[in-house]
Amino acid sequence: MPETTHAQSTQIQLASRPEGWPTAENFRTVTVDLPDLAEGQVRVANEFVSVDPYMRGRMSAAKSYVAPFELGEVMTGGAVGRVVASRAASLPEGTLVLHQLGWRDVAQADADAFRAVPELPDAPSSLYLGILGMTGLTAYVGLTEIAPVQPGETVFISGAAGAVGTAAGQIARLLGAARVVGSAGSAEKVALLTDKYGFDAALNYKDAPVREQLPALVPGGVDVFFDNVGGDHLEAAIDVMNDHGRLALCGAISQYNAQQAPQGPDNLVSFIKSSLSMRGFTLGNHLDKAGEYNQRMSQWFADGEIRYDETVVDGIENAVDAFLGLMRGANTGKMVVRTA
């Protein structure tokens, strides 16, 4: 394949830092000519790129666990694609690869910026951005390292119809949980959790306050809470935690666009009375679990134990719309942008 193949790249840059909810005006779409490959470099035509809630935090200049996106630079993040030109023996043309070069249809860099992954004969390559990738690993770390699930326990998962939430529900059950309960933002998503993903019960947080709905769904209390939402979900979970319950804080999407500091939970005294433990985490500190996870998830997947949903938006030029939709709950399962 000649090196001139895919010699241009359409890319999405951060143009300005959002205040509150992001808008399309915070981004810029550009098309650039790619230089000839240098020795040791490859050019990759992406098949899918990922949009994720954590990206909202990186749009702010505030100090966080990872460096903010730079203005005028491409939005980085997970992507999967195929090598279309190569000057690196380790990654010949046709190799399927993962990388973190983000929102662009064609990526070009040194070979060590890419990781070859096995072909998926009966599934889309986008699963490497979801249940077979960092999304699934995040759920696994939360339920094995941060708030370990023991057989017979009850698990409550907030934001359960999203990518991490659907993974967490299935993994909790595979780890031996006796009862798995989730929250979602529509009747359709609630039905999906119970009908497809095997949740024992689920609530629609838009129907009534979570604090009012949750107790009836967990009459025996909650042993492990996996939180993607924060705010009212965290407060409601604390109310129903059993003695020695564990809370894993993975995300707080309800607060990412807040312009004022949210009020904290009013029931933190329960941590004393019930000997609770709460721990936040980011995946970057637990990548040593990737090998173990890949082995276990590969077996679960091969055994037909894993289900998944994807919300697919076509076209790199629509990556911003996909991200804005994600922030407002428009996705079921993993949100990806198909660029091929």
Rank of each mutant, 00 (worst) to 15 (best):
A208W: 02
G142Y: 13
Q213F: 09
R279M: 10
S90Q: 14
S186I: 01
P148K: 06
G72H: 02
E39S: 13
V30M: 00
N257W: 02
I131E: 07
S86R: 09
D314R: 07
K289G: 02
L324G: 11
G264P: 12
L214S: 06
L34I: 09
E310D: 02
G251C: 05
V42T: 12
G102K: 03
M327S: 11
R104H: 11
I253P: 02
L129W: 03
F323G: 05
D207I: 00
D105S: 08
N204P: 01
H286E: 03
F199R: 00
I171L: 12
G325Y: 07
N294T: 13
K206Y: 01
G185Y: 03
D288K: 10
L120H: 12
L101E: 00
L37H: 04
G77A: 07
R173V: 08
W103Y: 11
G264I: 07
E305Q: 12
L129K: 05
A187F: 03
D239P: 02
D232G: 04
L91P: 12
Q295L: 15
D105N: 15
V106C: 06
Q299P: 09
P265T: 09
D303P: 04
L37Q: 05
L37M: 06
S275I: 07
G136V: 11
T5N: 11
L234M: 15
T144V: 15
P265M: 10
G136D: 08
Q41K: 10
A187E: 07
S183W: 00
A85Y: 13
L34Q: 08
M278N: 07
D227T: 02
A252L: 05
L127Y: 10
G291Y: 06
A237P: 15
F301I: 01
G304V: 06
A252C: 02
P35A: 13
V269W: 15
G94I: 06
K63W: 10
R279C: 11
Q41W: 11
G72A: 07
R56F: 12
T144D: 15
S254R: 01
V30L: 05
A67G: 01
A113W: 08
V240D: 13
P209W: 04
Y54S: 10
M335A: 14
P209V: 04
A258N: 14
L132N: 13
P18K: 00
G230V: 10
G78I: 07
G142W: 14
V240M: 14
L234K: 11
P209S: 04
L174K: 08
S274Y: 13
E317N: 14
A261T: 08
K189D: 00
